[in-house]
Write a protein that binds this DNA or RNA. Structure first.
Length: 271
DNA sequence: AAAAGCCCCTGGATGC
DNA sequence: TGCATCCAGGGGCTTT
């Protein structure tokens, strides 16, 4: 589910409601990808100062430390006054004076991890290697192109890797490469500067538009206020194998790259 | 050092 | 109806 747009839409759907709240209780359900890493009761009484995003992580700032939330492949959050008993896949609750923040994650690839600060070893392990944010003005052509030239793998894999630019997952990697007219299998190091610029702008454009549309809801994504996304309706290639390209009519193809599906138009996207 | 593979886990869709 | 197979939005860790 969650790439940068879905995580950001989730953040926006509850940040203003939860800031200032005090933690009243914590419930840890079935094991997630990593253990919480602190005594749950140590969070009680702390005030929620802010909710930020770094790549696909949500950072819930508390008075003493922060919680890193990752939605994995199938996670979603809800926040509100409904404190009904947890359902099958509700695996973590942060109950606050302003509402209950609940993680639902059927596949349990997600996690909630405590870090004493952003500079703690726990936080650095998860966030330290991440590339630049694409939507805050720091995603510059010079560094992007220089990074691309150093990589010997395909451009799709480099986008997914998140070490140059964060937040681009499997849907938006395919979509950005379509918008830039670049074949996903193209060697990263062979991308010219003008094409790197097209790709940089395409990444920014597709992610920003997806945020405006509430993200993509393919199966079950919804933000913390329950709203679903609509960007999947605008996808040019993702999940459209066998269907005609919206621009040229050619048949969209699906290939495998690194155990993930990639979609592209063989006519619009050049090697 | 970087790239490629391997898993973690559940559920829905499809095919026989 | 049942059962097997494939596929799924991520990413840290291990192996090459």
């Amino acid at each position: 589910m969650p790439e940068l747009p879905e995580v950001e839409v989730t953040r926006l759907s509850f940040v203003d409601r939860i800031v200032g709240a005090r933690v009243k209780g914590v419930r840890v359900g079935k094991p997630l990808r990593w253990p919480l890493g602190c005594e749950p009761s140590s969070l009680i009484g702390q005030q929620v100062r802010d909710v930020r995003r770094r790549g696909k992580y949500l950072l819930v700032d508390l008075e003493h430390g922060l919680l890193l939330w990752h939605l994995g492949m199938s996670g979603s959050l809800s926040f509100g006054d409904d404190r009904s008993p947890p359902k099958t896949h509700d695996h973590f609750d942060l109950d606050t004076s302003h509402g209950l923040l609940r993680l639902n994650d059927p596949r349990r690839f997600g996690a909630v991890v405590f870090a004493s600060s952003e500079h703690s070893s726990q936080a650095v392990k998860l966030l330290g290697h991440l590339g630049v944010e694409p939507l805050n003005g720091f995603f510059a052509l010079e560094a992007f192109h220089a990074g691309l030239r150093k990589r010997q793998t395909s451009i799709k894999q480099v986008l997914l890797g998140g070490e140059l630019v964060v937040g681009v997952g499997n849907i938006y990697a395919s979509e950005a490469l379509f918008l830039a007219g670049i074949r996903p299998t193209t060697r990263s190091a062979r991308i010219s500067r003008p094409r790197a610029e097209k790709l940089r702008l395409a990444v920014i454009d597709v992610l920003a538009r997806a945020v405006k549309k509430g993200g993509s809801t393919l199966r079950d994504f919804s933000a913390a206020d329950g709203k679903t996304g609509y960007f999947q309706l605008e996808a040019h290639v993702y999940d459209r194998a066998g269907q005609p390209c919206r621009d040229c009519g050619s048949v969209i193809r699906r290939i495998q790259q690194g155990q993930r599906s990639t979609y592209f138009c063989p006519a619009c996207q050049k090697p």
